[in-house]
Amino acid sequence: MNQIKTAALLGLLSGLLVLGGYLLVGDEQGLYIGLALAAITSFGSWFYSDQAALAAYRAQPLQRHEAPELFDMIASLSERAEIPMPKVFIVPTQSPNAFATGRDPEHAAVAVTQGILEALSPEELEGVLAHELTHIRNRDTLTQAVAGTLAGAVTFLGRILTFGALYGPVTRDDRRGGNPLGLLFLVILAPLAAGLLQFAVSRTREYAADLGSAQLTGNPLALVSALQKLEEMGHQIPMNGNPAMSPLLIVNPLSTKGLQTLFRTHPATEDRIRRLRELAQQRQATPVAA
């Protein structure tokens, strides 16, 4: 169900590009513009997603001799998840967080901040790493990168083509200004809708990664404890970087309340914790087969 929901949301994002181009230009030329942008941005995010995410947070490669226990933990979890060992990176910040990136499990990377290594116990860190490796196994890293790039392309289309519509002929009959409804759509409504869809994709995948972490470690409460610490400490020490990449992080770097929850890149931490605790109770209530 999550895969179907994610595919539908990505389809809607691509549709926004196509519809936006059509409304602005007013004929089939706009459709071609939208389709071309959707194709180019999707391919670019597929191929360069790992480089963009790592650069956004100034992540540096980490060698095994620098953190042997971390490498052993990731290797063990990767074997359980049945994926290749990803590359490991360190982010030079005291803000506790982590993320995974890469277009597929064979070209994946896991990045952890210096702060998270110092803040979490081994069990809590294992829960976080299992969460990130689940993203890799489920190819969420690609999904989130495509969603973020498509959302950005919608905004880009609005900014660039709006200038063309205002200051020069756009349609084949040289009408100046294009479609007024298209301008309104591209300047205000499309970026808003694209952002909401991007965040919906991210929230959908976070729940699945939490479940995957519990399955890989067999200890849902370890991730519960980690999320509690990360939520509290993350607000005290913000994570600087490109906001477009924030859906990749394990916890939302920004605090939102009320209507602003619509713009959360992650589900509410309280809701994630509640689901994990329910899962732990179910595991305890299920008798172990002899």
Rank of each mutant, 00 (worst) to 15 (best):
N242D: 15
G241D: 13
Y167W: 13
S45I: 03
S42F: 01
P267Y: 05
A214S: 13
V154E: 04
I250A: 08
D140Y: 11
L254C: 06
P243R: 06
Y167K: 03
V25W: 08
A151R: 07
T113D: 10
E106A: 10
L248N: 04
L37E: 12
F185H: 08
V128A: 04
E82R: 09
A119H: 10
L161P: 03
G102V: 07
G168K: 10
S255A: 14
N138P: 05
M233Q: 15
L223Y: 01
L183Q: 09
V170K: 02
A209S: 15
I116L: 03
P267D: 07
G168D: 09
E82A: 15
G164D: 12
R80H: 09
A147L: 05
F71Q: 01
G164P: 05
A38Q: 08
L150E: 14
L183C: 07
N219F: 05
E79R: 13
L142D: 08
R137N: 11
R272T: 01
H131G: 02
M245I: 12
A226P: 00
V112S: 08
V224E: 00
Q236R: 15
I237D: 08
A53N: 08
Q260L: 15
V146N: 09
L157N: 12
L197N: 08
L150P: 04
S202Y: 00
R277C: 06
F199S: 13
L31F: 05
A55M: 06
G168R: 13
T101Q: 05
R264W: 01
T171Q: 11
R264G: 09
E126W: 00
P220W: 02
F47P: 00
L37H: 13
V224R: 05
F263N: 05
F89E: 06
Y57H: 13
A39R: 03
H266M: 02
F156K: 04
V170G: 04
Q3E: 14
G26D: 09
A147V: 04
E232Y: 12
N240T: 12
G212Q: 11
L248C: 05
R277P: 01
A38Y: 08
L77C: 04
P243Y: 01
A289D: 11
G182F: 03
V91I: 15
P238E: 14
G127A: 03
A200I: 00
I237N: 10
Q63P: 01
A165P: 04
P122N: 07
P220A: 08
G21Q: 11
R139G: 07
G34E: 13
L54G: 03
I74N: 02
E278I: 06
A268L: 15
D72Q: 11
E69C: 03
S255P: 02
K229T: 13
S42Q: 11
H135V: 10
I4T: 11
N219H: 14
